[in-house]
Each structure stands twice: as structure tokens, then as C-alpha cells.
Write a protein that binds this DNA or RNA. Structure first.
Lengths: 128, 128, 128, 128
DNA sequence: GTGGTCTAGACCACA
DNA sequence: GTGGTCTAGACCACA
């Protein structure tokens, strides 16, 4: 089985690393890209892969567990627990980002069409 | 005399308050909505308005001054110094937000059209 | 391991503490006494050493970062980024002090030779 | 009688305006350039001359009075009270500046000879 | 009224 | 251990 690089972690974004991990798992679960029973990569794997401290990954995983998103089994990889969400639930998860984007665009006086084109263009970018 | 509420500050966004202020002034200046010579609301005004600590506002203002964005005159309100930017420069300022939005949308498996519609809808929201 | 006391902080000089720190780092970097990659003492260390508030030190460090003088790595000490300057650049940095000194000497009617001797004498003082 | 422009005020030096005035009078008195009985320019004159707030000048004058440096007479200009000082007393007044200059020079790694030459050169500058 | 400086102290993120 | 963010509150300099 291939090692799927699940996370897109940006240490310079200002968003805490553990939150980046947490939010991405939430989203992958919401969309059904991570299904109940799916295994998460181990703390060490993620830490090595992204050159971050295992403690940081571990913390994200613990919070996911507390949220009921994943379940921990002694000596085994963590598994996804939660089920899928509706389309609306999913849009709600990017609500905050949408708001910030639109606020920024307005303050920059970027025309609506320009912004929409920029989003479209990004969507056609490399599907990493 | 109108009290213009310049800033849209969200204490729950995870973005530090002083950075929200700093980034918004940068954007308003970039777009020419704040012109050289324009006065910024006073530290105390902003603090009162948004129920945050004056020191937090002051910190944002100090960083703006270090950046050369505004100029200070003893005992008087701060004034905008820098001028306008090109359209491209402005789009670059929301690049990071765009990236995060598109990543989130993909991880949520939100169809491109749905995302674009969501952006459009937000743009038609209340022009605060 | 030696504890190098980098800073000479005088709480009675009228110069804000954070500016004293900021200016001293600038000078030590300009002269190459602090090299790129060198670590700065931690905020807490400096604060303890000089019995000042950590926030005050932190403020100086934040401004240095905004200036591109140092770089921050999460959870690690700050490191020097910028490189050395020319001899002329360095003299320029004490220009303001030179002006004030000469103005003061003239207003006190201190003869030129007396002032120069006083400077020489100070230079031979303890090389702290 | 000519209006002697007594003060050299620099609003960008970081030194509070009232302190600049206060210190300069102290020095002019110390050196005997202002003799007991000499009149000081009026608050309004100084304020107009340097485009600063009369309150600021007034404050400096009040502090001088509190110090016994000058005396106020209803409706008349302020007059110098204190007498002359010894050469050593005068050098002591620029002690703090000397210290700051020498500290700065060392941190900039400016050779002693270079600093002394810089001081000499400044001394030969325009005798404003 | 304006902005600036500093402290004390709480709590967060990361190694 | 490292740095960062924020608050509450005191007091200064200037218009």
C-alpha cells in the first residue's frame, strides 16, 4: 500500500501546525475521502514527512480523538470513525475562509469578476 | 461627522488581532481606499469600537509605522503615507488566502462550480 | 558555557528600553560582531539579566524581525539574518549622537581639545 | 536688540522637545553663555520660531523655574538666575552622551582613531 | 484629546 | 525550554 501524503502543511502560513492537520482531516472526512475504518499515517510518519515535531502531530491526533473523529487502538494505527456530511455542512466548513477572502478582496478593491477568475484559475492549477 | 468603522475584526478567526488590523490597512492602502494623508482612527477609538485592548491596536499601528505605511505626528492622529499599488500587486496579496480556500475545497471534495457559486454569492452579500 | 551579556541597558537614559536593545543589535550586526546565524539570547534571559519585563524585550525582538534583522524559528532562539555593512554606513549610524554631542559641547563652551580628550579618555575606559 | 535663536530643536531625535529646551538652557547657563539677569525669549516667540506648541515650551520653562535656573517676574520675560559652573561640572553634563557615543562606536567596531577624527570633523563644521 | 512606554500576569504554540 | 498574543492598568509627552 502506497503512502498517501495526506497533508498539505505550510509552516509559514501563520496557522498553527496542529490546526492545519486537524482541519485537513476534518475536511477529508467530511468529503468522504477518508472513510470510516480508514487508517491515518502514524505520528512518526507525518512528522518525518513534513519535518515537524512528533509532539505537534500527536497533539493534532489527540484533539481529533477528543472530537470523536478518529479512534485510537493500542498498538495499531488510528482509524477514522465519523461518517459523511451533507454538501451544505461541507460548505460551512470553508465559510470562514470565504469570508476572509471576500473581505480582503473588497478592501483591495478587486473587481468581483477578477476575483472569480482568480479562483477559477487556481482551481485549474496542479491537483496536488 | 461619521464614524467610519474601518476594520472588520474577528476575535475567533485564529488570526492575531493586531495582524487583522495591519493586513486590513495594507489592503485599504493598496487599493487607494485609504489615500496618503488620510487619518487613521485613533488607537482608543478602534479599541473601544471593537472591545479590544488599546495596546493591541497600538502594536498594529507601530508595525505599520515601521513598515512605512503610516506616519506619526506627536499628539495627532496617524496618517497614511504610502501610495497605491498595481492590480497585480493587489491580487498577490490574497494569493495565500486563495491557496488555502482551494486546498480546503478540494479536501472537502466540493465541486469547482459549487465553490465558484459560493464565492459569487458571498460577493453579493451586504457591502459592509 | 558563557553567558554573554550582549546589551548595555540604561533605564535612566531616557531612551526607551526596547529602542536601546534594537539599536544595539543593529550596531552589533553592522559591525559583524553578530554574524548571520548567530543566536540571540532568549527574551526571558535578557529580561531576567536586566530586570526588565519580557514583553519589552519581546517588542524589541519583534521590531527586529519586521526589519529583517533576525529570523524567528518556532520554539527556537532567534537568529541573525542580515550581514555586515561598510565603514561609512557604520559611521552614519552614530551621526545623530555625534551631532548632539557637539551641540552640547558648544553650548557648554567646552573647548574642542577638552572634548576630544574626553572622548579619548572614555575610549580607554573598561572594554566591557 | 537681535533675536538670538537660542535653541536647536530636533523633533525627530526621539528626545522630548521640552527636554531639549531644558537641557540647552542648562548648558548655556553652565558655560556662562547665558549670564544671571539675561532674558529668555518668550514662550510664544520660541513656539513660533520652531513651530511647536506653546504648551511644550511653557512646560520646559516651568521646569527650569522649579530647578531654580530661571526666575519668573509677572509680565516680564524670564531671567536667568544661576551662576557659572566649573569646567568639570560642565563635562559631567555631557557624560551621558559621551557614554552612549562610545558604546555605539564599540558595538559598531569603529576604530578609536576613526571616531576621534569624526568628532574633530564635526567640531569644524558650521558654527550655527 | 492624541500616541508611547512599561509592567504584571495569563495562556498559547512549538521543540 | 523557546517566542507570541492579549489584557489591565499606570504614567509620560504632546496638541
Amino acid at each position: 500500500m502506497d503512502l498517501v501524503v495526506l497533508f498539505d502543511i505550510n509552516p509559514h502560513s501563520g496557522v498553527p501546525l496542529y490546526r492545519q492537520i486537524l482541519e485537513q482531516v476534518r475536511r477529508l472526512v467530511s468529503s468522504g475521502q477518508l472513510q470510516p475504518g480508514d487508517e491515518l499515517p502514524s505520528v512518526r510518519e507525518v512528522a518525518r514527512e513534513h519535518a515537524i515535531n512528533p509532539m505537534t502531530v500527536s497533539r493534532a491526533y489527540s484533539l481529533m480523538e477528543a472530537e470523536g473523529l478518529v479512534e485510537r487502538q493500542r498498538g495499531k494505527p488510528m482509524r477514522i470513525r465519523a461518517g459523511e456530511q451533507s454538501a451544505d455542512d461541507r460548505l460551512e466548513q470553508i465559510e470562514a475562509l470565504l469570508e476572509r477572502l471576500v473581505l480582503a478582496a473588497r478592501q483591495l478593491d478587486i473587481p468581483d469578476q477578477t476575483l472569480i477568475q482568480a479562483v477559477s484559475k487556481k482551481l485549474q492549477g496542479p491537483k496536488t
